[in-house]
Design a protein around this nucleic acid. Structure first.
Lengths: 342, 342
DNA sequence: GTGAAAGCGCTAACAT
DNA sequence: ATGTTAGCGCTTTCAC
């Protein structure tokens, strides 16, 4: 049977109240006594019982605020599903989630919502946001106010976020390069359609891809790299223009959204049989294009797990089951027609 | 704030004890009263609080017995890791796991250990065992004695197991066929090295593979299908014999263990560059062969998740948070050199 | 057949 | 500075 606060109290010859004070490093305890109690607790291998803790502080629910740039971006549906599952499982433990969704990557929108988060004084905060200085400053302010901050899906360069849960974008790119190498014998003539040159994740996917090809000693040439700005119309036009100009392109590497547009250009030009197309993530549009056989591989990052794990880990931390705090890098998942869901 | 037993009691004008009796369908309650209380509970949307339950029944820990044919089979290390993680997370809730490991697939060993499981009268039991009639009967006996039985990794054809957590072996095979199709242009001349014709999982992997090739309209021929009996020496000899006899084999499909032996034969004959090798699972030997570039793809099934989810779901059920009971089919994960761990 | 009370481990408010 | 107590939601025991 596990050690309880009672056991420690008896062993130390003090009351449970005192033990509680010591364990929470609250003051108002004689130093001698505190030391002795702590020593006994350590020695007996005390770990507080979660059920007991939860029940005791049930009137003050644990409030967690989330922020996602998810409006209009179906990728985040799965992250939210993960949030919701964690919330359901933790609802008996008094956890309440507030999810704020904003549209895309507008700096001011992010700053404004982060201000709101700060004002709400959450116990914990879980965000996907922009990795730029003003945002970092705003985040750090929240952290300093006593709220635990964690990042999901996209990390920010802040010493104050407790941990990150998300993919390794570089590895995703490298994995794409490995697959291309396996399924093509001839020279690879690649068109890269990226989302934005300003998005670190997109850039990392390109870097991993290129460096992977180089490590393989692959015979490749990048014909062009264009931005879709995550927009189908732009994706369509730029892809089409490139394909028309370069008859010999045999691979399209799509690092972000705009997939539907790019693939439509391929179809309109009747080139789908002479092209290997790589994309990222498993959203309705990529899924159906994979099933159609237009996209060969789509490389995924366990978005639901990201949401779920981020909240679970945050909860665990807030209940101070102090395990070592490490980032969680989700797996790089290769999906083809056969192993994509449904 | 969530509805509690107290709320119901007050609303119904009875004591908490009575409400508890009704909710547990224990007798000793006037039928009229029972009906009314139940109606009120339903109406108010009562769901019992996990923390409260756990704490109340803390003197009788929840005992779960596990059985795995894992001795000498590193695959199960991850399943066990999943068990252990779940056990750690649930230890505050009074969960205790007993893991029994046996060597391989000897019928009598399985029967003997299942007898032991029965004698222990666990609250729940989680097994990987043989899908044959004597075992099924033994399992059903446990289930009828009031213990909840679930299967992990390999299902059994028993109406009494509550749910199954594990892979879809057929889909794994199909995924392999899809990959082969993608990375080979010429006629596929395949050697199948399976574990045992008696193992349903291995057979399903073959069936999925073949049917997948057929659906693709692939140009293929299965040169031979041999058993390794999960043994490296046998795997070596039979693979070598086949390869020597058939110079034109260009693909080896390894459905089970014996991988090291088979690959050694390939190496000894200097054929690794002219062969695509597919294997299953991410164990030390497949992992190192993938990294070496000998195995191209290894197709995995989230073994750690299997162990973790099986215990978590079992726990949830035993605490009668009655969600709908469905099997959990783990994902089919493609690993290549780039995205395999480490 | 039903109510009342104790207790699981912990925290917080109150008392000394 | 320390001890005592009530109470979180639930189960169980005991009393009526």
């Amino acid at each position: 049977m596990a050690v309880t606060i009672r056991d420690i109290a008896k062993e130390a010859g003090v009351s449970r109240g005192t033990v509680d004070r010591v364990l929470h490093k609250r003051k108002g305890v004689n130093e001698e006594v505190a030391k002795r109690v702590q020593a006994i607790a350590d020695e007996m291998g005390f770990t507080p019982n979660l059920a007991g803790k939860v029940l005791a502080r049930r009137k003050q629910p644990l409030r967690i605020g989330c922020l996602l740039p998810s409006i209009g971006n179906p990728f985040f549906d799965d992250v939210i599903a993960g949030f919701r599952q964690a919330e359901r499982e933790l609802s008996d433990f008094g956890v309440i989630l507030d999810i704020t969704q904003i549209k895309s990557f507008d700096l001011n929108a992010h700053l404004k919502e982060i201000k709101h988060l700060e004002a709400k004084h959450y116990d914990g905060v879980c965000v996907t946001t922009l990795d730029v200085q003003p945002v970092i400053d705003a985040i750090d302010r929240i952290a300093e106010s006593g709220t635990t901050v964690v990042t999901v899906n996209t990390d920010i360069d802040s010493s104050h976020r407790l941990f990150y849960v998300g993919p390794d974008y570089y590895l995703e790119g490298k994995t794409a390069s490995g697959l291309l190498q396996l399924c093509s014998k001839t020279q690879k003539r690649v068109l890269i359609v990226t989302g934005s040159f300003n998005m670190k994740g997109h850039q990392e996917r390109i870097r991993g891809f290129i460096e992977g090809l180089q490590e393989h000693g692959a015979d490749y040439v990048v014909i062009d790299t264009v931005e879709s700005l995550d927009d189908d119309t732009i994706g369509y036009e730029r892809t089409r223009a490139c394909l028309e100009q370069h008859e010999d392109i045999n691979c399209i590497y799509l690092t972000a959204a705009g997939v539907q547009g790019a693939c439509q250009a391929v179809k309109d030009l009747g080139r789908q049989d002479s092209l290997r197309i790589f994309s990222f993530d498993d959203v309705p549009i990529t899924r159906s294009l994979v099933k159609e056989g237009v996209i060969t591989f789509t490389i995924c990052q366990q978005p639901k797990r990201q949401g779920y794990d981020a909240i679970q880990k945050l909860f665990t931390h807030l209940m101070n089951q102090q395990d070592p705090i490490v980032d969680t890098i989700t797996q790089t998942i290769i999906k083809i027609r056969e192993n994509i869901e449904e």
